[in-house]
Design a protein around this nucleic acid. Structure first.
Lengths: 146, 146
DNA sequence: AAGGCAAATGAGACCCATTCTCATTTGATT
DNA sequence: AATCAAATGAGAATGGGTCTCATTTGCCTT
């Protein structure tokens, strides 16, 4: 029993990584985060659970999880990188330049066009990262979620 | 006269910036570069013309030129930012993960879709940066330029 | 053409996100 | 339980980028 816990441990093992409390904590924090925390924020949240976690371990774990494809790193301009669980559906990110908030947008059509375009150029996409800096001008026409 | 030289000086003045030899050198280097140099490379190229240019000036000038909209900063993952003259036609960038080369792709259709999508969410795009890490799989179907 | 002054520069100190080192601990395997 | 490579904590080191400050220089005024 303890389906989620087992999942994390199994996911780590499947990725060829040892199961350590630090990795379990970080993975569960990321899995349970609706936002996109950076390394410092992750350290703070991890320490709330296990106050011995070191920043170096956060970075090492994030690198390992990223390499294993379990999480994704968002490289922003002029601020530390943020992280998210690898999304099932590919999506891009908007950074609200006034609030600093990061919003996800899914865009299948854009992704399809991009893949086609790259294919025509003889490339295969390894990863892609679209960062849109934008300003809110009004309420959305329709709720983005649900 | 010297149309280009005058153009650079005028562009600087139009942006509310003083015309200095350092800025002229950097602007002309960027204008004449087909690649996407980073700050160190720009320093080296600038010093070939005027060996007193300082790295701090390169960064300050790049910030000023970016703020003025004359150039664009490309924030990459795990490597220093690169710069390019603000393109007439908006385009995205492919980083060839094997060669490190940066390739431009224009994608009007993608840009249109993106603008529409953001508009529907109540946002106005301030700037956008798409970075595609890709691997060459074969020769392009058709030459990308001309 | 000369003077005045805010802006720009060069040099180097500094900042800060991230990585590295190394002594110690720990997970997995036998 | 013993073994040992992998992982960790703590703090030093790295490196891209920014800041400080004394000096220089555009540009404006006269």
């Amino acid at each position: 029993m303890g389906a989620e816990t087992t999942d994390f441990a199994q996911a780590l093992r499947d990725a060829g990584l040892r199961v350590t409390p630090q990795r379990m904590v970080l993975l569960s924090i990321l899995m349970g985060s609706a936002d996109h925390p950076n390394a410092d924020e992750l350290l703070a949240r991890a320490r709330a659970v296990d106050d011995s976690v070191a920043l170096a371990t956060v970075y090492r774990t994030l690198s390992a999880l990223e390499e294993a494809g379990l999480i994704r790193k968002l490289t922003l301009e002029n601020e530390p990188a943020r992280y998210e669980i690898t999304p099932a559906a590919e999506h891009d990110h908007i950074v609200d330049i006034d609030s600093g908030e990061v919003i996800e947008i899914s865009c299948d059509e854009i992704n399809r066009l991009r893949r086609e375009l790259l294919d025509r150029l003889g490339y295969e996409i390894v990863s892609q990262n679209t960062l849109i800096r934008a300003r809110r001008i009004r309420k959305p026409r329709q709720a983005p979620d649900s």
